[in-house]
Amino acid sequence: MKIISVLEDFGENENTIITLVPQTKDDLFTIYQIIDKEDEVIFKKLFTTKKDEVNRKTSTDLVNLRLKILSYEFDIKEEYLRYKGVTVADDTNTANLDVPVGKFLSFSVTYEHQFTIFKHHFNKYAKRLLKEALELETKSDTAAVVLQEGISHVCLLTASSTILKQKTEISMPKKKDATDINKFNEKTEKFYRATYNAMMKNFNFDELRMIILCSPGFYAKALMEKILKYAEKEQNNSILENQEMFIIAHCSTGYLQGITEVLRDPEYSTVLQNTKLIKEIQIMDDFFEHLNKDDNKAWYGKEEIKRAAKLEAVETLLITDTVLKSDDIDERETFLDLTYNIEQSGGRVFVFSTLQSHGEELGRLKGLACILKYPIPDLDEILENK
């Protein structure tokens, strides 16, 4: 993400004005989390205006429009972030020059043009999101290829999602005789070459720290051998000089679930522990382990966790972005203060994306759970007796 400027407006509206240019899917995700209903934006859009009422001539131009946000649609896999809103007065005199106030419009966020956000409540959570978007270590530095016979999925792993960049599928013939075996070998070579080409197209090998090749059986190992063969032939030094970035792992399926299996497998967790995604999965597993043991260290529910926080007993807080992005500003501020107080008392806070599978799991627990520093068997009874 390219940040042009961040300004505090201490005028009547007390907005924080952020001008930026999104550059990746992760940037769209950050924008989705930052912009709330009632915030305002200035963006560029092709707009048709009447130039002459008498002759009814029209002109289509790229103009600046200022909208108050009313709703949004977001699909990170399709790189689709669309807002709907209504035009409002613009005190910067740069937008809505030919468009009346009160007109309902929609627009999609693109990578082509900068746009400006007028943020009414630039709270601690939004500030942290913007800061993280600018830090190199929060960018995607881990990729994965999960495959089985005739099918592969080339993915990038981010804090927000497993992003499928390209799927390769080739129908493999049965091996009944020598002719079929030759055809099978040709198709196999074609399959691995196509997978390699997909990696070259979608991966920046100079920026990645880790590439997981995972599969049932021997397919991941075979792919690694083919990658080195093709790289040697092409003198691709980005691969040849960084072979240690590749990890070969076993999973039960060549589909996307296989990546989650690897991320959860203790055999690979030591190698993968530096990535934010694997840390979140491990924390979820720890929480459910305590819950299944019924050792009174795992709790979920807003009131229970608030009580535990007052006792400074929270070791780890698990909270979804949906809870922190509540439309109720007072509720949002309450949970932002909760996360701050837990961090101040030595606890850890993990914010889970509901676009990721483990974030969905947490969402089914109302988006809030915790692991305590010590057991509190009567935490809910204390609340009932209050």
Rank of each mutant, 00 (worst) to 15 (best):
V88C: 10
A89G: 14
L62R: 04
N96K: 13
F107C: 07
G102K: 06
H121F: 12
T58K: 07
L97H: 03
S59Y: 09
L65Y: 09
L97F: 11
D91T: 02
R82K: 14
R66W: 01
L65C: 11
V109K: 04
T116V: 01
N96H: 09
K124Q: 08
H121I: 14
I117L: 13
Y83P: 00
L70N: 15
D90V: 08
F115S: 05
T87S: 12
Y72H: 09
T94N: 13
T94H: 08
Y83K: 03
S106C: 03
K77D: 15
N93V: 01
Q114M: 03
T94W: 01
A95L: 04
P100N: 10
A126D: 15
D61T: 07
D75L: 05
D98N: 12
T116G: 06
L105N: 09
L65R: 09
L105A: 07
E112Q: 10
E73W: 00
T60M: 01
L62E: 08
F122G: 03
L70F: 09
F104N: 04
L70C: 06
L81S: 10
N93Y: 15
V63G: 00
K119V: 14
K84L: 06
G102P: 07
S71I: 10
V63H: 00
N96L: 09
Q114W: 03
H121A: 05
I69N: 01
E78L: 11
K84S: 09
D90R: 07
L81T: 12
T116P: 03
T60N: 06
E112N: 11
K103N: 03
A89Y: 08
Y111C: 01
E112W: 01
K124N: 02
Q114H: 04
N55G: 14
Y111R: 05
L65S: 07
V109W: 00
E73S: 10
I117M: 15
H113D: 14
I117V: 11
S106E: 15
E112D: 13
Q114E: 14
H121E: 13
T60F: 01
N96W: 10
R66S: 04
V54P: 00
P100M: 09
E78A: 09
F104Y: 12
Y125N: 09
E78I: 00
L67I: 04
N96R: 10
T60W: 04
S108I: 11
L70H: 14
D61W: 02
I76E: 07
V99D: 06
T94D: 13
F104L: 03
K103G: 01
